[in-house]
């Protein structure tokens, strides 16, 4: 039982990170109907920016951890947002209203570019960071196994929850959110009603990149090592999560992230660690067979 509880905690923490990345996929998909393959790499760029920021703060002698975290969080979000914006501007905006597969290919191209840019600029070796957030609570002890809820896990889940709430408010309460939803429904009509479509789409990428930066930072803190390749795996998982939950749906992305995180953690814990990805992907295929538009996606009525 305590083993189960521990895995549950680990799974939720991992799932939160996936969920944060998945939101970026789901928002972009919702608004322009394309798979932003480069989003996983934006997440990776975010984690690199966060790591460099930590090193800068370290060399400046900032030792107050909460302050350091806050600075890294805010600056990484801003800088990663610029990356998200640039990728959209260079690779997707020129292809708006064009062939649907074209932006998919540029997205894959951008993903290759980002990975290799980081590899060239920062080297291919894994980059470690000594633990920043340490400590935790022992929830239960006994049977030679103690259930530990670490501070970093608390930080991950709390940050995710806070961001989700903030985000929900942005989408439902602000003019930007309204413009986004309008563009989702009908881009032409939205532009005719005075919505600046290009700006709305750009802001969507910016918001997605910001969340990816947060996910990157949390990933860095949680695992302590990053390399230029983490974006691919995490990206595929997060996209799977977004589809799982029903692509285009924000709660769906979060739910999907949690489920994928849990499946992976539990499969590794109880069956085999090698096949954890197979478990996640198979679960996706099975879910899609029964819910062709994901768990929380709108069922599609075929227009004849």
């Amino acid at each position: 039982m305590s083993y189960f509880l521990q895995q549950l905690i680990n799974g939720v923490a991992l799932g939160s990170i996936y969920g944060l990345i998945a939101i970026g996929y789901t928002m972009v998909y919702g608004i322009i109907g394309m798979i932003n393959f480069a989003h996983g790499d934006i997440f990776m760029v975010g984690s690199f920016i966060a790591l460099i920021l930590f090193l800068i703060l370290l060399s400046l002698g900032v030792t107050m951890i909460p302050l350091a975290l806050l600075i890294v969080l805010l600056v990484a979000m801003c800088l990663t947002a610029v990356w998200g914006w640039t990728v959209e501007r260079i690779a997707y905006r020129p292809l708006r209203e064009s062939f649907r597969l074209a932006p998919l290919i540029t997205a894959i191209g951008m993903s290759i570019v980002l990975q290799n840019f980081i590899q060239v600029a920062q080297g291919a070796r894994v980059k470690p960071l000594q633990p920043v957030v340490t400590g935790g609570y022992v929830l239960s002890e006994g049977g030679g196994f103690s259930v530990i809820l670490s501070n970093i896990q608390i930080l991950i889940v709390v940050t995710t929850l806070v961001l989700m709430v903030l985000f929900w408010l942005v989408i439902t309460r602000t003019a930007l959110g309204r413009a986004q939803r309008a563009c989702e429904q009908d881009r032409l009509m939205a532009s005719l009603s005075g919505v600046n479509v290009d700006r709305t789409i750009s802001l969507t990428f910016v918001l997605g990149a910001m969340l990816a930066a947060v996910a990157g930072l949390l990933y860095l803190l949680y695992y302590g090592v990053i390399d230029f390749y983490i974006g691919f795996i995490a990206g595929i998982k997060a996209f799977t999560a977004a589809v799982f939950g029903g692509i285009g749906s924000l709660p769906g992305a979060m739910l999907g992230g949690l489920i994928i995180g849990l499946i992976e953690t539990f499969w590794s814990a109880y069956f085999s660690i090698e096949y954890k990805d197979v478990a996640a992907f198979s679960m996706l295929a099975i879910v899609l067979i029964f819910f062709p538009t994901g768990l929380l996606g709108r069922p599609e009525v075929e227009k004849v």
Partner: peptide, 17 residues
């Protein structure tokens, strides 16, 4: 690979079809 990816983007933007 960097140039390869950049070329993919460039060709696609140049000729989306």
């Amino acid at each position: 690979m960097l140039l390869f990816g950049a070329a993919m983007v460039a060709i696609m933007v140049w000729r989306p079809r």
